[in-house]
Design a protein around this nucleic acid. Structure first.
Length: 272
DNA sequence: GTAGCATGGTAAG
DNA sequence: TTACCCTGCTACG
């Protein structure tokens, strides 16, 4: 259940644990058996994340392309009998990485890797230039909450970071992209970079500024189920941490969106 | 114990 | 728009 920062952390962990050592590669569940057999005993050249896509590069003609989707998981643990449906296991004999329930796990070559990357917009965790994507968002009549989740525009952004950056910048998720100023669009990008970089280092999604933390506001400390402290994500009906207004919930592209109507009012302003 | 939902994306309808 | 992937957690009984 990952946003981009989790995939980047997994890539780091793969490199730190498995790089340049002969690896046992298998598919206990069987659905990746043929491909795993080809890779068994190979060395991992590198692991890399682009948005929510993970590439395990053994060589130019042997790259494992993984996308966890909503329910997939990839966990590291001391080597032991696999439990449940493990699609892919990579092990150095002591530690194992187990992949379960991925949306995608396939063997590809360098050309296909390029094709996948070409479908993705700039990744806030990769020092990419966001200019073209921000300009495209500024021409679109689609809701900004929808644009931020479009991986061809902003790779790696998920529902929580989308929701929280919009709150922090005071922008309503339903505001059309072409009604946002250059500064507002740039500000959203900068905020995604700030939040996601923090998530990459800590492994948690924390978006609440120091002045709004429970401690600063004289409330009980709280840790959400996703492991951090946020302003509005999954807080529908609860008071806004800044103004006390009731947090609202609605659907954008079939996904839940959350916002504070006072801190993020809809408004009619012309671009530029 | 078990129903329901979720940090996502694809493909069928 | 809906079904699915088929994990992992929480809420509920």
């Amino acid at each position: 259940m990952p946003e981009g920062h989790v995939i980047h952390r997994i890539a780091r962990k793969f490199q730190a644990t498995f790089r340049n050592a002969p690896l046992a590669v298998s598919s206990p569940q069987g659905r990746f058996h043929r491909e795993a057999a080809l890779l068994d005993g190979a060395h991992l050249e590198r692991a890399e994340a682009f948005g929510k896509h993970l590439f395990l590069v053994f060589d130019d003609s042997a790259i494992v392309h993984i996308h966890l989707g909503l329910i997939g998981s990839l966990r590291f643990a001391p080597l032991a009998e696999p439990r449940g449906q493990v699609r892919l296991r990579v092990s150095n004999g002591k530690e194992a990485a187990d992949l379960r329930g991925p949306q995608r796990c396939r063997l590809i070559d360098a050309q296909e890797r390029e094709r996948v990357i070409d479908t993705l917009g700039p990744d806030p965790l990769r020092d990419d230039d966001p200019a073209a994507a921000l300009a495209a968002a500024g021409r679109s009549r689609r809701a900004i909450g929808s644009l931020l989740m479009d991986q061809s525009l902003f790779a790696g952004v998920g529902s929580i970071y989308r929701t929280e950056s919009l709150f922090r910048r005071g922008i309503n998720p339903r505001q059309p992209g072409n009604q946002l100023s250059v500064d507002e669009r740039r500000g959203l990008w900068d905020d995604l970079v700030e939040n996601m970089r923090r998530g990459l280092e800590t492994g948690r999604i924390d978006t609440v500024r120091p002045e709004h933390t429970p401690e600063a506001m004289g409330r009980e400390p709280r840790v959400d189920e996703h492991g951090g402290e946020v302003y509005v994500y999954r807080r529908a009906g609860m008071p806004c941490l800044v103004c006390g207004e009731r947090v609202r919930e609605g659907a954008i592209d079939g996904r839940k969106a959350f916002w504070c109507p006072r801190c993020q009012p809809m408004r009619g302003r012309t671009p530029r």
